[in-house]
């Protein structure tokens, strides 16, 4: 059972209160019409799948119903930190070069 800290509620809660929403920091192309098939396919379908630290979006579906980001180790399942959408993690997790923030929906 993961214990996830919701930065909105300021509390650790059990994982069944949350929904996992996939990789964080994915920038939607500013002008989708001008994307090549390759760029659009990459945006839609290609995700990081690291064995190790992973930055991901979680949704507090049975709580405040807000989104936030988490840095979690996909091997040990240890959660390093939770942080708000639109910010970068404080310590762990290497920032992406293309990390324009986009609110997941």
């Amino acid at each position: 059972m993961l214990h996830i800290h919701c930065p909105h509620c300021g509390e650790h809660r059990e994982e069944d209160e949350f929904h996992y929403k996939g990789q964080a920091h994915i920038a939607r192309p500013l002008d989708p019409e001008s994307c090549t098939d390759e760029q659009w396919g990459d945006y839609l379908y290609f995700r990081d799948n690291p064995r190790g630290l992973h930055r991901e979006v979680w949704f507090h579906s049975a709580g405040c119903r807000k989104f936030f980001n988490v840095v979690r180790d996909t091997q040990t399942y240890e959660i390093h930190e939770s942080y708000l959408i639109g910010t970068q993690p404080a310590g762990s997790g290497t920032p992406d070069s293309d990390s324009t923030e986009v609110q997941a929906s």
Binding site: M1, L2, E14, E15, H19, Y20, R51, R72, T74, Q75
Partner: peptide
């Protein structure tokens, strides 16, 4: 399990 993982173990929920 909904989240990515390589741990070869799952969650109780």
């Amino acid at each position: 399990d909904s989240y990515n993982g390589y741990g070869q173990r799952g969650s109780f929920p």
